[in-house]
């Protein structure tokens, strides 16, 4: 009974995690420039992966410790890689969407906004 409940909950978490990943993919296609795309990609992959890992943890409780470690690793590395990508993109002056309202970084480093 409890095992069945855990299975159901685990499957549900897997599903919700996958939905967020799908939305992230949609964001990559729809967002207007590289910075907005990085935003879409980072947030959804972080939560999506965490939910998926939790789901797997409920389905396979023996793996819980390893899954937790993977989750921690994702939490620390995902935002860092996003920040490094965004910084590199800004430094080499990748095109920003014309919708961009303000760019304080370009103003302060003396580039064209």
């Amino acid at each position: 009974m409890i095992a069945a409940l855990l299975d159901l909950l685990g499957a549900l978490l897997l599903l919700v995690g996958s939905v967020f990943m799908l939305l992230g993919g949609l964001g990559l296609v729809r967002m207007p420039d590289v910075f907005n795309r990085i935003q879409a990609g980072t947030k959804t992959t972080t939560l999506g992966t965490l939910l998926t890992l939790s789901g797997v943890g409920l389905l396979q409780p023996d793996w819980a410790l390893k899954l937790l470690l993977i989750g921690l690793f994702i939490l620390f590395t995902n935002p860092l890689s996003a920040q490094v990508l965004a910084r590199a993109a800004h430094r080499i002056g990748l095109r920003k969407t014309p919708l961009t309202r303000v760019d304080r970084l370009a103003e302060d480093t003396g580039e064209d906004a």
């Binding site: 967020f20 939305l23 967002m31 207007p32 420039d33 910075f35 959804t44 919708l99 304080r104």
Partner: peptide
Amino acid sequence: ELVRSNLNLARVVLSPDLPVNPGIVK
């Protein structure tokens, strides 16, 4: 905040008119 952030993003990506108003602030 992470959950809110994802729901917020979902709303933006699923809106037909893509309501973004981006910029880099200090």
